[in-house]
Each structure stands twice: as structure tokens, then as C-alpha cells.
Design a protein around this nucleic acid. Structure first.
Length: 564
DNA sequence: AATCTGTTGTCCCA
DNA sequence: TGGGACAACAGATT
């Protein structure tokens, strides 16, 4: 896979790199570099790695197994750690194996260490006496806090720090600054500020053919890339295993396959994709590779613009494939510039809404037993594959929050964050804010129907039959609403509703009325108090909403008034 | 103050 | 399969 990739000028990261406080070279005695991998698990288009290799007698390529993400949690609702499901952990390990193998081909290897990353890296810096520390700049709050600690230590020790922006197309901080210190809150204003990526016009062919050797590792405990078993996890069955394999090699292969069909690339329109397509997904499924940095977003960007150059016409942002990359940057920028972006409270761009705290409804949604086959099938795909089509994500997110169950978006966000192999802090939170009508998008009367939305793409219900095999023999007339099937039909399909498959947890028709009413009241409150809604205000609104409840459509009735 | 825009709704009708 | 009604929001732009 050591192919020559057509890459752009490195000038850009000189412009955007975050420089350390004037390092004092005399203080660092060594002449080696430490390359700290976190995301950016690739060889191609990796400015931090390139810099680590430059003028170094040795390079220490390090990955730290962080218990915060990787420690097994037997109490979690699915196999994995408290924060990551096993499919994503496996995807990461596969990416590390691939990275290690590529590094070995360059005469190096990956050094895997375990422990708190801050402490581990600082210990390595001390013991190995490196002159330079290189790692990709990261806007996620977890890394922001971690990186400050490490940078402070390195600067004080006279170690040069090189931390380029290479995960996204743009520098979020740069865009926020251009906008007067606040992130743009609409896609169009983001595009205006972002402008054309300046580096796109100056391509450069880079071939990384070798790396300086790994230096003496001293007493640091180095291991190979662990297996899931070595990390303390039980192997999961084939049935629960995601079909997507991690790693840079896989990412580049998938990229090549995706852009082979020029017409498909040129005519791509995200909203027109079929969420029920699972044998051949309607999108590229490159998101997990972008998340871990197995694929460089700007290499992807340049491959797409190359295709555009050779076709008569092509689609444009927001719906085009390039548009998707720009959405990614949009959410990174808003997430970076918004305090408490991942919470409702204290988040100035988030509407304060009196969501339910209903663990039963949340569990029904999470465990794929809402009684709506379209919703439940998507939730099964989430658990098994760690990936669903974008519109499928919309359907279940809308259903959990503003559409039907009125459960807090943060609860759904947590489930997605854990189970998606492509879960990305900024993008995941941004989309939950969007879908719950808490920010960016406010037309709460537009609700995805859990019955008709899927039906228009997949009238026969093949997607449901695949992910919910209990319904595989249900006639297509009833498969989206099996509770309406006559008892004889249910018996014949060997699926008795209420026994083999649950009855709906809510009645959709009355649930949407309730949700719209609550959102109208909540919006009015937010407008009246102009961004200063307190906990007390929300409590009062909750009481008011209960008092006003129409006995024909209150929550308990909504739950009980089920057909059949 | 009025108007336009917003990645991806549903239902009904022709 | 495509258009309009529905009911209607916030934020950006004028």
C-alpha cells in the first residue's frame, strides 16, 4: 500500500500549526522525536508524522491505550467499556494493527503503552530525552484538556511541540476568529467564512518511503497491539460483528471503490439516498475512517475535486459529497467554539426544553423494542453494525426526542456515542441538537413517521426482515404496523404481537400532538426569557404541561391507547 | 419590519 | 412522481 499519493502542499500546516512557546533546544539532550498517535491513524498525508521524521535520528511512534475509553465495563448495556461499544474498540484495534504493519514496512513499528495518556507521554518524554513531540491538533474537549497538560510539560522541559491541524479541512479556531470570536451557526455562513481551502490549488506528490528507526525504549513497558481478549473482553459472535474493518489500507481501498463510479460521485445527493439499503449502502461509509483519521479528509477532498474536474456537471454543497466533508468541518467548528456544546444546560445555542426522564421509554428505544419495526430494525443495525444510513439515524433520533418519546437528546446521544463505530464528538452532538430541534433546525412540526417514511423506500420491508427476523414472514401490508395484522395473519407469520414482538410503546398519532404542544410551549418560554431559562422555569413548565394535559391524549393515555 | 432561507416531513391530489 | 397545502419555526438578510 505504499502508493504515491497525490497530496497538496505542506505550506498549509505551517500556516495553521500551533507553535510551542519558544523552545530552548539546549535543554533537550536527545535528537529523537515522539510521534503521538490518537486520531490520524495513517501514514498518508500526516503532517505530524512527517515532522517527526524530519532531521531526527530516531522516531518513537506511540499509541496509548487509554482506560478512559478502553477499560471493560461489565455493567454497560452492551459489551465494551463504559464509553465505547466493542465494535468500535475492535475497529480501533484493527486500525492500530494496520498502522503498525505500515510502520514496519517503513523500518519502524508502533509502540503501544497503557495508562493515563498524559502521564504515559510525559514519562516517555523524560525517559527517551526526545527533542520534539508531534501530535495532531484535536478540538475535542477531552484532548484539549489533555494536550494542555502535555504541552505545558514539554514547553517547560524545552521540548519542541508540533501539533498541526490535519484532522479537518479548516482550522476551527481560525474560522471562529474570522467571525468575531463566535462560531457561525448556519451552514451558509460557515461556507462564506471558510471560503476556498487555499491548499487545494497546489498539489504535491509525497511518498513516505522510510522512517528513522525506533530508539532505545528504556524501562517503558511496550506491547504489541492488543487483541480484544487481551484487553479483557469476551469475543462477540459473528452475528454481532460489524462488517466494516478498521485501518488505513481498508480506508484507501474503500475510497478507491467509492470514487470509481464518477457519475455516482458527481450526482451524489445525500437526502436522496435510500436509508433501507444495506446490501450496498447508499453512502460511502467512509465516516468511521475519517473519524479515526485512517483517511485524510483533505486527501478525500482532493480526490472528489479531481472527479468533479472531469465531469460535465456535479452536485454542490450542502448535498454533494464535498458538502458532507464541509458539514463535518461545520460541526467541528461549532463544537469547538460553543461551551457546553454536549449539554442542554449552560449551552447558549441550545433551546431549553422540559424533556422527559423516562428510563423505560429510553430502554425500549435502546433495546429495539418500541414496537415500531422501522425504528427497531434501525436500532438493531446500530447495535450490530455500528453504522446506519444518515436518514435512518434521523428517524430514530426524531422518534426518541421531539417526535414521539420526548426523551432527552443527551440520552440518545450517549447511546449513539457508544455504539456507532464512526461516533465523533462534534458531529454526534451537533446532529442530536439538530434532530431534537434544540439548535440549528427548529421546524418541530416536521416529524418523521415511523410507519410511512421507511415504507416509501422499501415497501416490501426487506430491511426490517433482515434486521428483525422475527417479522420475516409478516405480509408486507402489515410489516410496518404489525399490530394491525389480524390474529390469523399473526399466527401464520409466527409472530404474535404482544408476545413475539412488542406492541407499540406509544401511539404515534397522539404522541406527535403531545410533542408539538410541548415544544410550542417550550419555544415560547425560551423566547420570553431570551436565553436565560432556569431549571426552575423548566420545572414550572413541566407542571403547566401536565395540568393542561388533554385527558384524551395525555402521556399515560398515549401509552395505553394502543391499537389491538 | 419584512422577506428570504433552511441538506433530507407528511398528506393529498392529479 | 411531482406539486401544493399544511402550519410555522429561527436566524440571516434586506
Amino acid at each position: 500500500m505504499r502508493v504515491s499519493l497525490c497530496l497538496s502542499s505542506p505550506n498549509r500546516f505551517l500556516q495553521f500549526c500551533h507553535r510551542p512557546n519558544s523552545p530552548n533546544p539546549s535543554m533537550a539532550s536527545g535528537s529523537g522525536s515522539l510521534m503521538w498517535f490518537r486520531k490520524g491513524l495513517r501514514i498518508h498525508d500526516n503532517p505530524a508524522l512527517q515532522q517527526a521524521a524530519k532531521e531526527s535520528t530516531c522516531v518513537y511512534p506511540v499509541f496509548v491505550i487509554d482506560p478512559y475509553f478502553m477499560e471493560p465495563d461489565p455493567n454497560a448495556f452492551s459489551p465494551g467499556s463504559s464509553r465505547a461499544g466493542l465494535n468500535r474498540i475492535r475497529f480501533l484495534l484493527e486500525s492500530l494493527v494496520d498502522l503498525d504493519s505500515s510502520l514496519r514496512q517503513l523500518g519502524s513499528r508502533l509502540l503501544v503503552l497503557k495508562g493515563d495518556p498524559g502521564e504515559v507521554i510525559i514519562r516517555c518524554l523524560k525517559e527517551w530525552e526526545v527533542k520534539r513531540l508531534c501530535f495532531e491538533y484535536d478540538t475535542d474537549p477531552y484532548y484539549q484538556a489533555l494536550d494542555i497538560k502535555v504541552k505545558n510539560y514539554a514547553s517547560a522541559a524545552g521540548i519542541e511541540v508540533f501539533s498541526p491541524v490535519s484532522h479537518t479541512l479548516f482550522d476551527s479556531a481560525d474560522i471562529i476568529q474570522k467571525n468575531g470570536g463566535r462560531p457561525p451557526l448556519s451552514y451558509q455562513s460557515f461556507l462564506k467564512l471558510a471560503g476556498q481551502p487555499s491548499w487545494a490549488s497546489s498539489p504535491l506528490s509525497t511518498t513516505l518511503s522510510w522512517l528513522p528507526p525506533v530508539g532505545d525504549v528504556g524501562t517503558c513497558e511496550i506491547s504489541n497491539v492488543p487483541t480484544v481478549k487481551e484487553l479483557g473482553y469476551e469475543e462477540i459472535g459473528q452475528d454481532e460483528l460489524t462488517p466494516f474493518k478498521g485501518g488505513e489500507s481498508e480506508a484507501l481501498k474503500r475510497l478507491r471503490e467509492s470514487i470509481r463510479d464518477k457519475e455516482w460521485v458527481a450526482n451524489f445527493e445525500k437526502p436522496k439516498g435510500d436509508p433501507s439499503a444495506f446490501l450496498k449502502p447508499a453512502t460511502t461509509v467512509l465516516s468511521p475512517y475519517l473519524k479515526f483519521g485512517c483517511l485524510s479528509s483533505r486527501y478525500f477532498y482532493q480526490c472528489l475535486t479531481d472527479v468533479y474536474k472531469n465531469v460535465k456537471r456535479h452536485t454542490s454543497p450542502p448535498v454533494s459529497l464535498v458538502g458532507q466533508l464541509l458539514w463535518r468541518d461545520f460541526f467541528y467548528t461549532v463544537g469547538f467554539g460553543t461551551p457546553n456544546f454536549d449539554h442542554m444546560k449552560g449551552n447558549r445555542i441550545c433551546k431549553q426544553i422540559p424533556w422527559n426522564d423516562d428510563d423505560e421509554l429510553l430502554a425500549a428505544w435502546r433495546e429495539a423494542r418500541t414496537g415500531y419495526p422501522w425504528i427497531d430494525a434501525i436500532m438493531v443495525q446500530l447495535r450490530k453494525w455500528g453504522w446506519m444510513h444518515h436518514l435512518a439515524r434521523h428517524c430514530v433520533a426524531c422518534f426518541l426526542t421531539r417526535g414521539d418519546l420526548f426523551v432527552h437528546w443527551e440520552k440518545g446521544r450517549d447511546v449513539f456515542e457508544r455504539l456507532l463505530i464512526d461516533s465523533d464528538w462534534a458531529i454526534n452532538n451537533g446532529n442530536w441538537l439538530w434532530l431534537s430541534c434544540s439548535s440549528f433546525f427548529y421546524q418541530y412540526n416536521r416529524i418523521y413517521s415511523p410507519i410511512t417514511f421507511g415504507k416509501k423506500y422499501d415497501p416490501n420491508g426487506n430491511y426490517i426482515r433482515h434486521f428483525l427476523p422475527i417479522l420475516k414472514d409478516m405480509p408486507k401490508e402489515y410489516i410496518y404496523e404489525p399490530w394491525t395484522a389480524p390474529p390469523s395473519i399473526q399466527a401464520k407469520a409466527k409472530c404474535i404481537i404482544g408476545k413475539d414482538y412488542p406492541k407499540p410503546v406509544v401511539c404515534h398519532d397522539s404522541a406527535i400532538k403531545e410533542c408539538k404542544r410541548k415544544l410550542a410551549e417550550a419555544y415560547a418560554l425560551n423566547k420570553r426569557l431570551d436565553g436565560s431559562v432556569t431549571e426552575e422555569d423548566l420545572k414550572k413548565l413541566r407542571r403547566k404541561l401536565e395540568e393542561d394535559e388533554n385527558p384524551e391524549s395525555n402521556t399515560s393515555r398515549t401509552r395505553q391507547k394502543l391499537i389491538g
